[in-house]
Design a protein around this nucleic acid. Structure first.
Lengths: 202, 202
DNA sequence: GTACGAATCGGAACTAAGTCCGCTTACTCG
DNA sequence: CGAGTAAGCGGACTTAGTTCCGATTCGTAC
């Protein structure tokens, strides 16, 4: 039991000033290096040196390379999530579940295609983003839509298959090895969503 | 244009005797060490030392850790593939596509559950098995069944979603973190297959 | 049996991720 | 304002995968 502060403090009230500054410098350095050379050609050492901090600082803050990568993607995903929760339909509330699913899938894949997949590929487990990374946050969103429109499903499993389809390695494989257009990938995902909806509608 | 040999030679006719012997020793050593300590606690050094060969030999033969792992899984998958192609229905030919899909998925997941997922997890990219590893061989099988029973689909994409569901990390997550029974995982996969079939039937 | 070329071998060297721990410094409280 | 203290810092170290290259050995042809 402790006294409540009289003024609202930011969520990171426990972060020391130097720590916050280092975090910003690390993120800035990483952003710049990744943009310059591509994520595949940047080591954690490189980032630490460019940010002027030691390895310990980076790992204390971000845990591992995946953590740093997810943090870099954080801002765009905060924006995206905001649009899901409070934006205009069909991405936001107000459209039918099927339409919202389609809009979500297409937008998510567009983000993947826009550099995100390359970054995720350099994490130890590219597929890990579906469990730990940005996509983990979308599980709930998908689950709500599916539960509403397809209650007869094992919704959790269906959600897993839908997010697995965002796997970075798969995406790059489809786009580059197989030369698919982004539209084909998006259409495929929407077909998967529709198949689940049809199977789970009462 | 060269003379045909009078006697049929094994496929590895170009493999030198010492190379073949080393390959066998490496596989034997790896099998034993993996069984003893678990794949996660065995380094490539350990295998090389136990097999009495150098690192160069291992990497010349198997390319990387994933290659060695896939080779270890090779035998059981050769047997499994044989059952798919020439075994009794419903795994083998002679049953309806839906039944064959279910049988295949259940059997594949049983293999995953039986130690395979742990081994795959120690490769750099656990999900890579669906592109390079044992599952790559099953794409064709799935594609044939789907093309036959659900011609209206983008069969290639549907196949991708079906094999992504064999991802080792996902499997271990479902089984251990979420505590699902193997039956629930198998049922989920069969539901996915059915959803695609229903969506793609004319 | 011998000599030769090429495939193969072995292990040292390289890279990069992630850990450890003694030192430093920002914040707090008297 | 001046300790005290716990969080934070830095960079050497550890570990493991992968690469390289000079030495070796196999298979063959004479």
């Amino acid at each position: 039991m402790q006294e409540l502060p009289l003024t609202a403090l930011p969520a990171e009230q426990t972060e020391r000033a130097d720590a916050a500054s280092n975090r910003r410098r690390i993120l800035a350095a990483a952003t710049e290096l990744f943009a310059q050379r591509g994520a595949a050609c940047v080591s954690m050492q490189d980032v630490a040196k460019a940010a002027g901090v030691g390895m310990g600082t980076m790992y204390r803050r971000f845990g591992d390379r995946a953590g740093l990568t997810f943090a870099l993607l954080g801002e765009r995903h905060r924006v995206f999530q905001e649009r899901l929760l409070h934006g205009a339909p069909p991405l936001g509330p107000g459209a039918l579940a099927a339409e919202r699913l389609h809009a979500f899938g297409r937008a998510r894949i567009a983000l993947l295609d826009d550099g995100e997949a390359d970054m995720l590929l350099t994490t130890a487990d590219p597929g890990g983003s579906t469990l730990r990374g940005p996509d983990a946050a979308y599980r709930t969103h998908l689950a709500i839509l599916l539960r509403e429109a397809a209650p007869a499903l094992d919704v959790e499993y269906a959600v897993d298959t839908l997010v697995m389809a965002f796997d970075a390695r798969l995406h790059l494989h489809l786009r580059h090895e197989r030369g698919w257009t982004i539209a084909r990938v998006q259409d495929g995902w929407c077909a998967l969503a529709d198949a689940w909806l049809a199977a789970g509608a009462r």
